[in-house]
């Protein structure tokens, strides 16, 4: 499904050149649950952003189901994100001024050629994460766990083939963190490819593969059978 070939990402400011990623090669198959691990500042989030096409590699090729995303236009990438990707963030990033339902509906807003009823899709996503009873509330009225479940609903409402999660449980207590992990696992079981950045070994243990990054290089990729 995904093939990263010799991906590097350099950041240049006036005098300093920082290497965030160096010559990363990574293939991910449909249906995998990949955990990306590594210490702070190692380039995990850069890798996730490149996978999510909200950052471009400096060099290298990014093939997604046969299409080269590294050279695709901005508009093409936007369409790609709308049709194929779902994002989950550590700080939820719900829009304050929209209700939970409206936030989730945002996940469909930029999709063209939408088949089926938008309303039904939103209802289904809310049911899937158990947030339907909060549909008319605003994000600040919800607990962290509820906000993250709403954010997941927004990410999956368009039935993406790839779900990108950047420390999705980082701002949650263990009980809510556990719930979120369960949702991700069940989505994965339903066929969605999940790539998740995490600090937690116990969460990484629940993935089907662990990729370790250190100082911008991929140091280890371990396939494991989920417990």
């Amino acid at each position: 499904m995904i093939a990263l070939k010799h991906i590097s990402r350099l950041y240049r400011s006036d005098e300093i050149e920082t290497t965030a990623l160096l010559d990363v090669n990574l293939s991910i198959n449909r249906g995998e649950f990949v955990a990306i691990m590594g210490p702070s500042g190692c380039g995990k989030s850069t890798l996730l952003n490149i996978l999510g096409t909200i950052d471009r590699p400096t060099t290298g090729a990014y093939m997604f189901e046969g299409a080269d995303l590294a050279t695709m236009s901005e508009a093409g990438l936007a369409e790609h994100r709308a049709n194929h990707l779902g994002f989950i963030f550590q700080s939820f990033n719900l829009v304050d001024d929209l209700t939970i339902r409206e936030n989730i509906e945002l996940g469909l807003l930029y999709r063209k050629n939408l088949s089926g009823s938008r309303k039904a899709m939103v209802e289904e996503a809310m049911d899937q994460v158990g947030i339907a009873h909060r549909a008319r509330h605003y994000p600040h009225q919800l607990s962290g766990g509820q906000q993250q479940r709403a954010a997941i609903a927004r990410a999956i409402v368009g039935a993406p083939s790839l779900l990108l999660a950047d420390e999705p449980t980082g701002n949650l207590d263990s009980e809510n963190g556990h719930q979120v992990m369960e949702i991700l696992k069940s989505l994965n079981a339903g066929g969605v490819t999940v790539i998740m950045v995490t600090h937690s070994q116990s969460q990484a243990d629940q993935a089907s593969r662990v990729v370790n990054i250190l100082d911008g290089r991929m140091v280890l990729s371990v396939n494991r059978v989920p417990a």
């Binding site: 936007a78 990707l85 994002f87 990033n93 829009v95």
Partner: peptide, 16 residues
């Protein structure tokens, strides 16, 4: 800005 960034991850183009 954050709302804008989120909308972009959801597939909004600059034009949108």
């Amino acid at each position: 800005a954050r709302e804008v960034a989120v909308r972009r991850t959801l597939g909004a183009t600059r034009g949108d």
